[in-house]
Computed example of a mutant assay.
Amino acid sequence: MKKLFITVLFLGFTIFLSAQNTPQVGDELVIKATESSTYEHIDFPKPNILIKRGSVANYKSVVGNTVVIEEVNTKADGTVVVVLKQKDGGKFFNFKKKVTADYNAAIAAKELVAVK
């Protein structure tokens, strides 16, 4: 009986932890600065594209922006991809309305942080 109780408790705890890491449409996230010059898990345009569009080729303008999850997609390999838009309705770099991101990798790399 004791082993059954411990097993059920362990399974419940595991399900509880996995449920917290699931993104929902409407969740708010904040874009944080990275140590490198580019974002690895958020699909922002490359610097050469920004230069061609007449924008400054750095990502300082997106640091600290609050974004909202508009769509959640799960790929066949289990990767969770989210479509992000700015909370204020603006555009990223004045030309891109939405960007995609690998949710779990971006959270682990601290490129995205959940708003509490």
Rank of each mutant, 00 (worst) to 15 (best):
H41Q: 11
V99K: 03
K75R: 12
G26Y: 01
I107S: 07
A57M: 00
L84F: 07
T79W: 07
P23C: 08
F95L: 04
D27V: 07
V113S: 07
G90D: 08
N21K: 15
V99A: 05
L17R: 10
K3F: 09
I31L: 11
V115P: 05
N73I: 11
T38F: 11
N58H: 13
D88A: 04
G90I: 07
T66C: 01
K52C: 02
D88T: 11
V82K: 09
V115G: 04
V56C: 00
K91Q: 10
E35D: 15
T22N: 15
V62P: 00
G54M: 02
V113H: 10
E40V: 10
V82F: 04
V30F: 06
R53H: 13
T100S: 14
I6E: 02
G26T: 09
T79V: 13
D27Y: 08
F93R: 04
V80F: 05
S18V: 06
K87H: 12
V72G: 09
N94K: 15
L29Q: 12
K87G: 06
Q20F: 09
K75Y: 14
T100R: 15
G78I: 02
L112H: 09
V25I: 15
D77H: 09
A109N: 12
T14I: 12
T100I: 06
L17A: 12
I107P: 01
T66Q: 14
N48D: 15
Y39T: 10
K60C: 06
V83F: 08
S18R: 10
Y59V: 11
K91A: 06
G78L: 09
E71A: 02
K98Y: 13
F93L: 05
S37C: 02
K2P: 02
T74D: 02
V80E: 08
A105H: 04
G26R: 08
L4C: 00
L50I: 07
V63K: 14
T7F: 09
P45S: 07
K110M: 05
N104Y: 08
F5D: 00
I15M: 12
T74L: 10
E71Y: 14
I31T: 11
K60S: 15
V30N: 08
F16A: 08
N48L: 05
N73V: 11
E35K: 12
S55I: 09
K52R: 15
R53C: 00
Q86R: 15
A108N: 13
K46H: 14
K46A: 07
L4S: 13
I51N: 05
E111C: 05
L29R: 11
T38P: 01
I107L: 15
S55T: 03
R53E: 01
I6Y: 02
A106I: 06
K2M: 05
T79F: 04
N48T: 09
L29F: 13
D27G: 04
I42F: 07
K97R: 11
V113W: 05
S37W: 00
L4A: 13
K116N: 15
G64F: 06
V83P: 01
G78F: 12
A76V: 13
L50V: 02
G54K: 03
F92G: 03
A33Q: 12
Y59G: 06
K60V: 02
K96A: 08
G89S: 08
E40I: 07
T34I: 07
F95C: 04
V81F: 05
K96Y: 03
S37M: 10
G89K: 05
I15E: 08
P23A: 04
V99G: 07
T7C: 04
E71P: 03
D88I: 11
N48C: 02
E71S: 11
K46I: 04
